Simulated assay, not measured.
Amino acid sequence: MTTVSGTRVDVISRDVLPPHSSIVVSARLAVTVEGAEGVVDLTGELRRIVADSGTAEGSLHIYCGHTTCGLVVNERDGGLDLDMGEVLERIAPHSSKHHYAHDKLRTPAERLVHGERDNGHSHARAMVATHPELSIPITSGALYLGRWQAVMLAEFDGPRTRELLARVHTALPPTTTGSTASA
């Protein structure tokens, strides 16, 4: 478990798959963001998953099945977080400052499902600033990230707990069928 400024990353399941699968480990992560918006560094937990898998060469695939948050690889820096917040406020102003059809055209039943929360800005921000999935190479048993790169979840509609799926794929050697020569 990693705890940073009102956030938490927990591995909620970890499965080791059968020997002849290219997927070595499949893990589900629960990421809790206690603020309305926030960036959570997942790099440490993902590095542990890769290290524990024993995979020397392959890739890590991580998927976020949500529409108001997403994944990003960039530098983990407080100043950059502030800059991106300002950029996103210009591109996709908060729902309280801008009309989003997503918010205003909902039926009363749809509003109840979403807790009466206007979140058009959250969808727009996730669409322009993040990805639903990432694939990162594993080489020499470690994630192949640049010196300043971190893998992060950017939340735009908190507070919430999000579930992510991470899978370690191994680069299996090609199977040889062997040829038999006829005499």
Rank of each mutant, 00 (worst) to 15 (best):
1 M>L: 14
1 M>T: 14
1 M>F: 12
4 V>Y: 15
6 G>C: 02
8 R>C: 09
8 R>D: 05
9 V>W: 12
10 D>W: 12
11 V>C: 13
12 I>D: 01
13 S>N: 09
13 S>M: 08
14 R>W: 11
17 L>S: 11
18 P>T: 09
22 S>H: 14
24 V>H: 10
25 V>E: 07
28 R>V: 13
30 A>E: 06
39 V>C: 12
42 L>R: 06
42 L>C: 12
43 T>I: 11
44 G>I: 06
49 I>K: 07
57 E>K: 12
59 S>P: 04
59 S>C: 09
60 L>G: 02
62 I>M: 02
67 T>E: 05
68 T>F: 05
69 C>V: 03
72 V>L: 08
75 E>W: 08
76 R>T: 12
76 R>Q: 08
78 G>D: 10
79 G>K: 06
81 D>S: 10
81 D>W: 13
82 L>K: 09
83 D>S: 08
83 D>F: 15
88 L>F: 04
89 E>Q: 15
93 P>I: 07
93 P>G: 11
93 P>E: 03
96 S>Q: 14
97 K>T: 06
101 A>H: 11
102 H>K: 00
106 R>H: 02
108 P>T: 00
111 R>T: 02
112 L>A: 13
112 L>W: 02
113 V>S: 07
117 R>S: 07
119 N>A: 06
120 G>T: 02
125 R>W: 06
126 A>C: 08
127 M>E: 06
129 A>P: 14
129 A>E: 03
131 H>G: 04
133 E>R: 09
135 S>Q: 04
135 S>T: 13
140 S>D: 11
141 G>A: 08
143 L>K: 04
143 L>H: 04
145 L>I: 11
147 R>P: 11
147 R>M: 03
149 Q>R: 04
149 Q>L: 03
152 M>V: 05
153 L>R: 05
155 E>K: 01
155 E>T: 05
156 F>G: 05
161 T>C: 01
161 T>S: 10
166 A>W: 05
168 V>G: 09
169 H>S: 08
170 T>L: 07
174 P>A: 14
175 T>P: 11
177 T>R: 12
177 T>N: 13
178 G>D: 00
180 T>L: 15
181 A>H: 13
